[in-house]
């Protein structure tokens, strides 16, 4: 073959090879543009793998003092040190003596203190009427009598008329039941009505639920126990 023919053949061969390589590329690249990115069509699922992390300790403060250096006992670390001189034995301290005498407290007494009865006692301690609570004839605020008053629920209406003080009495039995009532003073007003209602409530309460009279108040069962119905002024 001549040189010219060889060049033409080589050119054609190159062209054919180039075509064989380019055509599929062009065809494939055009197919890509027609179909959307397949990743876009995919459903994305995020996933992660849980792994146990190693514990990382924050820096910790020292909570304990470092142990003191241990020194060897009985060993002097100073070669020139002399041993201390021995002192004579000191007498031991004696415990303080108990004062057998009662201290004189009269100097602490306030002039107005009145804790000693002056003159003869009119009401001897231990009398019938609850004196174990004190020297008064009947103790103020004896729980049993307080409960009696509470059970009466004495409370006149706001517009109740009357200024009198009705006095209603009961006869208590030792078992706590009320066997009789009477009005020693009648005021014929609304306060009288309130007092009557109070006694009625008391009798009802003590009939349904009698409370035994305590020993120190038993004397009350042999006489009338009278209530003076007052109204407080606001």
């Amino acid at each position: 073959m001549r040189d010219g023919e060889m060049h033409v053949t080589a050119l054609l061969g190159t062209a054919a090879l180039a075509a064989a390589l380019m055509v599929p590329m062009v065809v494939l690249s055009s197919a890509k543009t027609v179909d959307a990115n397949p990743i876009d069509k995919m459903q994305m699922i995020e996933a992660s793998l849980a792994m146990k992390a190693e514990k990382v300790k924050q820096p910790q403060k020292e909570t304990h003092a470092p142990p003191p250096p241990v020194k060897d006992e009985g060993v002097s670390h100073d070669a020139d040190k002399k041993p201390p001189e021995k002192k004579p034995d000191e007498p031991k301290e004696k415990p303080p003596k108990q004062d057998d005498k009662t201290p004189d407290l009269s100097k602490f007494k306030h002039p107005t203190d009145d804790d000693t009865p002056s003159g003869p006692q009119k009401t001897p301690i231990g009398q019938f009427d609850g004196s174990e609570f004190g020297n008064a004839p009947v103790s103020k605020g004896d729980p049993y009598l307080q409960k009696l008053v509470a059970d009466m629920r004495y409370s006149p209406p706001e517009i109740a008329k009357g200024n009198g003080v009705p006095v209603g009495c009961i006869h208590l039995q030792p078992d706590g039941k009320i066997v009789d009532t009477k009005f020693q003073t009648k005021t014929d007003d609304d306060l009288q009505t309130a007092a009557e209602a109070a006694l009625r409530d008391l009798v009802k309460a003590r009939t349904e639920n009698p409370v035994e009279v305590p020993t120190h108040l038993l004397s009350l069962t042999t006489q009338w126990l009278c209530f003076h119905f007052n109204v407080s002024i606001k």
Binding site: Y154, V167, F227, N230, V231, S232
Partner: peptide, 24 residues
């Protein structure tokens, strides 16, 4: 609630108790 012994103001042979209620 003040307890008083029977006195001249109260009945003989009776123990008196003052009961004070509030009008309401």
């Amino acid at each position: 609630l003040v307890l008083l012994l029977a006195s001249a103001a109260h009945a003989d042979d009776a123990v008196g108790i003052d009961v004070t209620g509030t009008k309401k």
